[in-house]
Amino acid sequence: MSDAVIDKQQVAASFSRAAGTYDQVAELQRNVGSNLLGRLPDTVQFEALADIGCGTGYFTRALAQRFAKPVLGLDIAEGMLRYAREQSPSGLAWLAADAEALPLRSASQDLLFSSLALQWCPQLPLALNEAFRVLKPGGCMAFNTLVAGTLVELREAWQAVDGFVHVNRFMPLPQLQGILAGAGFASWHCEVEMHVLHYAQLSELTHELKALGAHNLNAGRPSGLTGRARLRALTTAYETRRQATGLPATYQVAQVLLFKGLDQV
Rank of each mutant, 00 (worst) to 15 (best):
R133M: 12
P137L: 14
V44G: 05
L212I: 02
E86H: 07
H166G: 07
L202T: 13
A148Q: 13
A48I: 06
A183S: 15
L118Q: 03
A244R: 11
D23N: 08
D110W: 02
R82E: 11
R105V: 06
T250I: 01
R169Y: 01
L151I: 03
G139S: 15
A62L: 03
N129T: 08
M194H: 06
L63R: 14
L104E: 08
A99C: 04
T226M: 03
C121E: 04
T60P: 00
L205N: 14
L49F: 00
Q177L: 13
P137A: 13
V32R: 00
A93D: 09
A127D: 07
N218E: 04
A233Y: 15
L116D: 01
N168G: 10
S108C: 11
A127C: 04
G55S: 09
L37E: 05
A19F: 10
I76V: 05
T56N: 12
Q10G: 12
L212A: 01
I6L: 05
D42F: 10
R230G: 10
Q65T: 14
S223G: 15
Q201G: 02
G261F: 00
F143C: 03
V253H: 00
S90T: 12
V167S: 01
T236W: 06
D263I: 13
V265T: 15
R133S: 08
L63Y: 02
E153I: 06
Q65C: 12
L112M: 07
D51P: 07
D3R: 15
L173G: 03
L63D: 00
G178V: 09
Y22I: 04
D51K: 04
E193G: 04
A157L: 04
H198S: 11
E100N: 12
L231S: 07
W94S: 01
G20D: 05
F46R: 10
L135Q: 06
L72R: 09
K260Q: 08
A142I: 06
E100Q: 15
L258C: 13
C190S: 07
N218V: 09
L95I: 10
R39H: 11
D42Y: 14
H215A: 11
Q243P: 02
A200W: 12
T145Y: 03
V44S: 08
Y83I: 02
F259W: 09
E193W: 11
A183F: 04
A160V: 09
R133Y: 04
T43I: 03
D110G: 15
A254Q: 12
V32A: 01
R221W: 09
A107G: 05
L128D: 05
A107Q: 14
R30W: 07
W94M: 02
V196K: 08
E130T: 15
H189R: 15
A211H: 01
G53H: 13
L231V: 12
E78C: 06
H207R: 14
K210L: 06
K69L: 06
Y83K: 15
L257K: 11
F15G: 02
A181K: 13
T21W: 00
M171Y: 02
E156Y: 05
A26L: 03
Q9E: 10
L209Y: 00
L197D: 15
I6V: 14
Q201N: 09
E191W: 02
A50S: 01
L126T: 05
S106H: 05
R105T: 09
E204C: 04
P172K: 12
A157K: 02
L154A: 14
N168W: 00
W188P: 00
L118G: 13
R230P: 13
A117P: 13
L92T: 02
W94K: 03
V196T: 15
L104A: 04
D42R: 13
S16E: 07
T240R: 10
V161W: 10
